[in-house]
Structure formats: C-alpha cells, structure tokens
C-alpha cells in the first residue's frame, strides 16, 4: 500500500469508529446488544484505553528495551489521584487533572532515577518492588483516602454532567478514542524524533551509545517519564469509564497483563501494541461470556475449569506466542502481508 492509500484507509476507519455510537444494528457473536448501545460502547472504549496503555508500555519495553514491571503504578496514579481529588476533596475536574499531571510527572522522575541505576533484570525487580509498595499503600487505605480493597466510587458534585450516566457513554467512547489517537501521535512523534532514535540505539547496544558521548541514563529517564505520564492519562480515562477506582489496577498482575498485551501484539511496533491491548481486553471480556455458555458448562470438570479461566487461556496463548511466534500477532500479520504482497508482485 502506498502511504496515501494507507492514510485514506486510516482516516476512513477512524471516521467509521467515531460514528459507531450512532449505529443501531448489532453484530451477533462479536458483541452483545446493539453496536451503538452503552454495553458495546463501554467495551470498545475500554479496548481503546488498553490499546493506548499497551502503547505506553511498548515505549519503554519495545523501544528502549527496559523491562519494567512497575507500569501499573503509573496507570494507578492517574486513576487514584484524580479519584481522590474529585471524590474526597471535591475539587473541580480541571484542578484535579492538573494535580494528577504534576504527580504523574514527579513520581516517575523520582522512582525512575532510582530504578535506572540498575539494568536488565535487576531493574525489572526494582520496578516491581516499587509498584508493590504502591499496591500496599492503596490497599492500606491511608487516612481513608483510597477506600482500600473496596475501591473508590467516583462521586462528588463537581463532575460535569456530560460524563455521568449510561446515556452519556457515547461521550466517554469519544474521549477514549481521542485518547488513543493522541497517545498514538505522541508516541509516533517521540520514536521518530532524534531522542527516539537514541532510545532504539540504547535497546540495541547501550555501551555503544555511551561511547558516542551520549548519556544513556538521561535518555532512559526521559522515556520512562514520558511513558509513565501517558499511562497516567490512560488511567484518568479508565477512571471515568469505570466510574470508580479499584485496587486491582495497582497489582503486579496488572503489569503482567500489560506485558502480555504488548508481546501478544508485537514488541517494538506501535500499532502492534495497540492491537495487542485491544485484542487482550476484548478476549478477557468475551472469554468470561464464553465460560458462562451452556456448551462450556456442560463439559466435564477437567475441560470446564480451564476454559472458565480467561487468564489461563491468555497465559497459555502467551507462552505459545513467545515460543513459536516471536513477533506476536502484529509480526505474524505483517509477514503474511509481505508474503502475499510478494507473490502478487506488488
């Protein structure tokens, strides 16, 4: 495909997506209920948020080669800081967002400065430890702020009315779509900028970058903070979509899910990561529905139990992909496109 054709397809696709809330028909099997109904829109919006989140994770993992196990912490920062400011302190939404923005710049700056003293696997373990500290903090419910294990429902009198209620799901859907597009553009711009090229050079050979007179530490810190900040933005939209904060987003399991998304879609490509995030969230949601169907429930226990656990199926899929399809779904798709393109002589 020439760049112009690709751009046209992209724009048409986005317009169709943006017009989706107006659609009245349904696609049985893929989605329950009408395509423009609140349930489907909410699921799709969640898919967009996770696509964007996977993209932010791919920035550090795929482009700089930093295997961070603490990305959930920054997503959770977006979720919890906004939720606390709006619900507990009754701040207006813009003020809450400003506070969230400041926190989600300062926190990764400090933690990243410490974590990046280590490399490779020790780095992974340290980020994991900090994320765990965040998870403990949220679970302990300090000063009654986070709501502990019960989570924190987004409430308060300051939220604009167009963000609340089932009938306004379409607004949230558009916000999520806009988030995905903006983050994609920022990430695309970042990885194609001069610092972005240094990131990829660090991934390939960090010592060589240092030999060239550049300071890898500062570049890595820059990527870390950018990725964390964008992840917090995803957290804010997630909070609005879910109408509350739940402690699950702070756990190490959540970061591992992000890792699965990125590897599922293809490490080191932007659209691959988005694809992985969207597919993962969709499967996670739909596999629960699958396990409740009568066909699965009628199976003997030895088959029914594994099929009822979405994480089991996703974990196995993940192992198979790592072992046999190193490029992920995105890589496989691209190879297929290249292959068919070659045989057609295009």
């Amino acid at each position: 495909m020439t760049p112009r054709v690709r751009l046209t397809v992209l724009v048409v696709g986005l317009v169709v997506l943006a017009a989706l809330p107006l659609a009245g028909f349904s696609i049985p099997g893929l989605f329950e209920g009408a395509l423009g109904g609140p349930g489907t829109l909410n699921l799709l919006a969640l898919c967009f948020v996770f696509g964007a989140l996977a993209l932010t994770y791919d920035l550090v993992f795929g482009y700089v080669g930093l295997l961070s196990f603490g990305h959930a912490l920054y997503f959770a920062t977006g979720v919890y800081v906004t939720a606390i400011a709006v619900t507990r302190w009754h701040w207006s939404l813009p003020a809450a967002l400003l506070l969230t923005a400041v926190v989600s710049l300062v926190l990764p700056l400090i933690l990243g400065a410490v974590c990046l003293r280590m490399r490779d696997i020790p780095f992974a373990m340290v980020t994991l430890a900090f994320a765990q500290a965040g998870s403990i903090l949220v679970a302990q419910n300090p000063f009654g702020l986070t709501g502990g294990e019960e989570g924190l429902a987004l409430g308060g009198d300051t939220l604009p009315s167009f963000l609340i209620g089932v009938t306004n799901t379409r607004n949230l859907f558009w916000i999520a779509l806009a988030l995905l597009i903006v983050i994609y553009l920022v990430a695309w711009r970042a990885v194609n900028s001069p610092p972005g090229r240094v990131w990829q050079a660090i991934r390939e050979n960090e010592r060589r970058v240092a030999m060239l007179g550049l300071n890898p530490y500062l570049y890595k810190l820059g990527a870390f903070v950018l990725s964390a900040f964008l992840a917090s933005a995803c957290g804010v939209v997630y909070l609005l979509l879910q109408g509350g904060a739940n402690p699950e987003v702070t756990t190490s399991g959540f970061t591992l899910a992000l890792l699965v998304m990125v590897v599922l879609g293809g490490v080191g490509t932007l659209w691959g990561a988005v694809l992985g995030g969207v597919v993962y969230e969709y499967l996670d949601f739909r596999l629960v529905a699958l396990s409740n169907t009568s066909a699965v429930q009628a199976l003997p226990g030895i088959l029914r139990v594994p099929l009822s656990e979405p994480l089991f199926l996703l974990g196995v899929l993940f192992i198979v992909l790592v072992l046999f399809v190193p490029g992920g779904l995105g890589g496989a798709l691209r190879r297929r496109l290249v292959l068919t393109g070659a045989t057609k002589g295009v």
């Binding site: 591992l256 699965v260 656990e309 089991f312 974990g315 196995v316 993940f318 192992i319 072992l323």
Partner: peptide, 30 residues
C-alpha cells in the same frame, strides 16, 4: 519451556510470566 529459549533472555522471563499467570488461575479455578 526454558531450554528452547537459551538464546533469548527476555523470552525466558516472558515464558515464566505466562506460566505463572496460567498456573495460578488454573489452581484458582480448580
């Protein structure tokens, strides 16, 4: 799982992550 991936360190970590997720959710289901 680990032996086929001796040349790929990140792949080894990823496989153990997948195994941990799958096994623990299976135990929880069972």
């Amino acid at each position: 799982l680990i032996r086929p991936l001796y040349a790929r360190h990140v792949g080894q970590v990823l496989v153990t992550v997948g195994l941990a997720l799958a096994t623990i959710s299976l135990v929880q289901g069972g």
